[in-house]
Simulated assay, not measured.
Amino acid sequence: MNRFIVLLRGINVSGKNKIPMADLRQLLHDLEFKNVQTYIQSGNIILDSEEIKSTVCQKIKEGIQNKFGFEIPVIARTIPEWKKVIQNYPFSLENEKIVAFTFLEHNTEIKKIEVKGILEDEYLIDTNMVYLYCPSGFARTKLSNNLFERKLNVTATTRNLRTTLKLLELATK
């Protein structure tokens, strides 16, 4: 049995793509995933499955499409992969309010993109991750999911440090 942390992109944002967490958990149980947990309302899931990562993502994506009627990108990581993401963070972790992790749906060969006006914000692209350090604040940064999706041609979803650490804590209890 494998444990996965699964991230849904773009649910319960500005009243769009609304999925009540109780309904999402029921769907995941119906799809025969085990030990299903959700964390906050923004599409963070922990679950166990015998399936491989790509199958887990596809089943969830199809299940949401069938039950709720919209298509949602789904990204998953194993617990060792999640731990590696945190360990590899290249910037300071001292101020949690300016630290974030952008998870990419698949690997990219691109290591640098041109982004104008990012002020003192920094990023590092690493295979299937983008590490963010945003002293200007996340409300002001140009380093967004949409930017990375457009420049890297890959689906992306971002979680702040607090959520990233909490998901690991819940997944390893």
Rank of each mutant, 00 (worst) to 15 (best):
K116N: 12
L104D: 02
C134P: 02
L119Q: 13
S92L: 14
G137Y: 00
K18A: 11
I79W: 13
L24G: 03
H106Y: 06
L167P: 01
N128V: 11
K34S: 07
Q58A: 15
K166P: 10
K61S: 09
N17H: 11
V130F: 08
Y133C: 12
V115P: 01
Y123R: 05
L93E: 15
Q41K: 09
E51T: 14
G15E: 03
P135V: 04
G69F: 00
I45P: 03
E149S: 05
E96A: 14
R77H: 12
E62D: 13
T164Y: 04
E51A: 15
F33S: 08
R77K: 12
N160S: 08
P135T: 11
L7I: 10
L31D: 05
R140Q: 11
I79N: 04
L132P: 03
V36P: 06
T158W: 11
T157W: 00
F4N: 04
D121N: 12
N44V: 02
N145V: 00
P73Y: 01
R77V: 06
E169F: 06
T163F: 03
K111A: 08
T141G: 00
K18Y: 08
F68D: 02
L161Q: 14
E109R: 13
V130E: 02
Q41P: 10
T163C: 14
N153M: 07
E96G: 05
S92W: 15
D121Q: 12
L104V: 01
K166M: 04
N128Y: 08
I110K: 00
M1P: 04
N17W: 02
E81G: 02
G63A: 02
T163Q: 07
D48F: 09
S136T: 12
G63M: 02
